[in-house]
Computed example of a mutant assay.
Amino acid sequence: MTQAPSGTGRQGGRTDIPQAAAVLTTDRGPDRGAPGRRERPVERELHPYGPAEPADGLVHEGGTPAAPHPHPHPHPHPHPHPATNPRPDRSPRPGTGRHGTAEQSEQSEQSEQENGYAMERTRRYTIESLDTGLRLIQLFLAHDRLTVSEAAALLSVGRSTAHRVLSTLEGRGFAVRDSSGRGYAAGPELVRLGLPAGFGAAARRRLGAVLDEAARRTGETVQSAALVGDQIIVMDGRESPHPVRATLELGRTRPAHATAGGKLLLSSLTEEQVRALFPGEELPGYTSATLTTRSALLAELALVRSRGYAVSRGESVPGLHTVAVPLAGSSRRDRLALVASGPADRGEDGVLLRRAEELRRSVVLLDVT
């Protein structure tokens, strides 16, 4: 068997299966330290971003002055040449030309003032556009899908403004269009930015009773997991009492396409969102059982949607079989999966099906707590 990394081992006749390390160990292995729960900072596993690219298309103050007209003014009355005229051509000087009345002069000055106010509004609009975009991003935290009309109504802006902002977010990967072409959903960049709900003490207390019940019913290591980009992250859990078991590692991330919890949470997304998370057809493989194409993943997600649970048979860890069902949440940000993990000799297909039912029964406790 493959040697496990440090932090797992035998204690009191129990042998850990480190889920994150993708290794099975036996009692015959060397001592690797005391097993147990290990807290890891989430920041270690989340993918950092590099420096932001310089923004293009910003509105800058000032501008390039208009080039002088190459020919003299066509009006028959004498006017200074535009190149030497200190006033714009659209504002005749008082007392000159057919429109050179005092009234027209006042109107011209008023027009210049209005143009100045328009420029000031343009400078303010640049900031307002950013504010509108940020408010729209906040809407995606509570809405899985938004149409242009819905976004305009919620933001109290015009449909054209909402459409421009949504198109800008789409261009930067913060929004994606659904199959109808009329609705938008959170894009991969936005998904990566948002940490999932469930880390707080209140959420852990609320879900704790479910985890206790699930561990009792299945006899295996159980955990709650959330989707962050193309990864899942372990939020909380309980370890199995079996001598050979899966180890719980809080804050650990694993590839979503190779885990039962990840596939369950991916199945709640639209196909366009999944394609945006996995832009290439080829997917990384971790074992011989891993789904290594996006087409195979999409077909698997369709099966998960139809049956209501997901399984992984050694796809991320050789010899580790897992099953997952929905735990909580109605939107991308707060959706969680309830996962049970155990060695392959305790995870045949029929056992996984029964285990999924036991997990569902445990989730019912949320309705009474």
Score class of each variant (00 low, 15 high):
3 Q>E: 13
6 S>A: 15
8 T>L: 14
11 Q>L: 05
12 G>Q: 04
15 T>H: 14
16 D>G: 13
25 T>H: 11
25 T>Q: 12
28 R>D: 15
30 P>G: 13
35 P>D: 02
36 G>C: 03
37 R>K: 06
38 R>D: 06
39 E>R: 15
45 E>S: 10
48 P>A: 10
50 G>N: 09
51 P>H: 09
53 E>V: 14
53 E>P: 06
55 A>Q: 13
58 L>W: 05
59 V>I: 14
61 E>W: 14
65 P>G: 02
66 A>L: 14
73 H>C: 12
73 H>N: 12
75 H>D: 15
75 H>V: 13
76 P>R: 14
76 P>Q: 07
84 T>W: 10
84 T>F: 10
87 R>F: 05
89 D>H: 03
91 S>G: 01
93 R>E: 12
98 R>F: 15
103 E>Q: 14
106 E>C: 02
109 E>G: 01
113 Q>G: 07
115 N>H: 15
119 M>P: 01
127 I>M: 08
127 I>Y: 06
129 S>E: 10
132 T>Q: 15
133 G>E: 10
137 I>H: 10
141 L>I: 14
142 A>N: 11
145 R>E: 14
152 A>W: 11
157 V>K: 13
158 G>L: 11
165 V>E: 08
168 T>R: 04
169 L>E: 03
170 E>D: 00
175 A>G: 05
176 V>N: 00
177 R>D: 00
178 D>G: 14
179 S>Y: 09
179 S>Q: 08
183 G>K: 06
184 Y>T: 05
185 A>S: 11
186 A>K: 06
186 A>E: 05
188 P>E: 01
188 P>Q: 00
189 E>D: 07
191 V>S: 11
193 L>H: 05
199 F>V: 09
199 F>Y: 13
203 A>K: 07
204 R>Y: 06
204 R>C: 10
207 L>K: 01
207 L>D: 03
208 G>A: 01
210 V>C: 00
211 L>Q: 05
214 A>V: 06
214 A>G: 02
221 T>V: 10
222 V>F: 00
226 A>M: 03
228 V>P: 03
231 Q>I: 05
233 I>Y: 08
237 G>Q: 09
239 E>H: 09
245 R>M: 06
251 G>L: 03
254 R>C: 09
261 G>K: 04
264 L>C: 03
266 L>T: 13
267 S>Q: 11
272 E>D: 11
274 V>I: 12
275 R>N: 09
277 L>T: 01
277 L>I: 00
283 L>F: 06
289 A>H: 14
290 T>E: 09
291 L>K: 09
296 A>F: 07
300 E>Y: 09
307 R>N: 01
311 V>T: 14
313 R>M: 07
315 E>D: 10
319 G>H: 04
319 G>Y: 06
319 G>N: 02
321 H>R: 04
322 T>E: 12
325 V>C: 14
327 L>D: 10
330 S>P: 06
330 S>H: 14
334 D>W: 04
336 L>M: 12
341 S>I: 05
343 P>H: 07
345 D>T: 15
348 E>C: 11
350 G>H: 12
352 L>Q: 00
352 L>E: 01
353 L>V: 13
354 R>G: 04
354 R>F: 03
356 A>F: 00
358 E>Q: 11
361 R>G: 12
361 R>D: 08
362 S>G: 07
367 D>A: 12
369 T>K: 02
